[in-house]
């Protein structure tokens, strides 16, 4: 998938996990930008993204996830059309 196509879908996941319909994500959004983004929500984000995009993050992937752009880069790679 192209990053442009990933953002809307990933945004939907974030809005659902944080139960905030007005939440908007950018490549630089990180945990300190969203209230409630703790390690528990991180798990939910990862599990939801894996389910939604039909992919698996590796141990190394998970270690390196800090901001939204990391999610998008990895999803693009794993869905087979990395830039």
């Amino acid at each position: 998938m192209q990053p442009d196509a990933i953002y809307p879908q990933l945004g939907e996941i974030f809005r659902e996990v944080f139960a905030d319909p007005s939440l908007v994500i950018t490549p630089d959004t990180k945990s300190s930008d969203i209230s409630g983004w703790d390690s528990g929500r991180m798990i939910e984000l990862i599990v939801a993204a894996e389910t939604e995009f039909g992919i698996r993050f590796t141990t190394r992937d998970v270690d390196g996830m800090a901001k939204v752009a990391d999610f998008v880069r990895l999803i693009a790679q794993k869905t087979g059309s990395a830039p």
Partner: peptide
């Protein structure tokens, strides 16, 4: 899921 075990010592996967 070994990933969650190594990352967060969660022996029962979140799923």
């Amino acid at each position: 899921d070994p990933v969650w075990w190594f990352r967060a010592k969660q022996e029962i996967a979140p799923q």
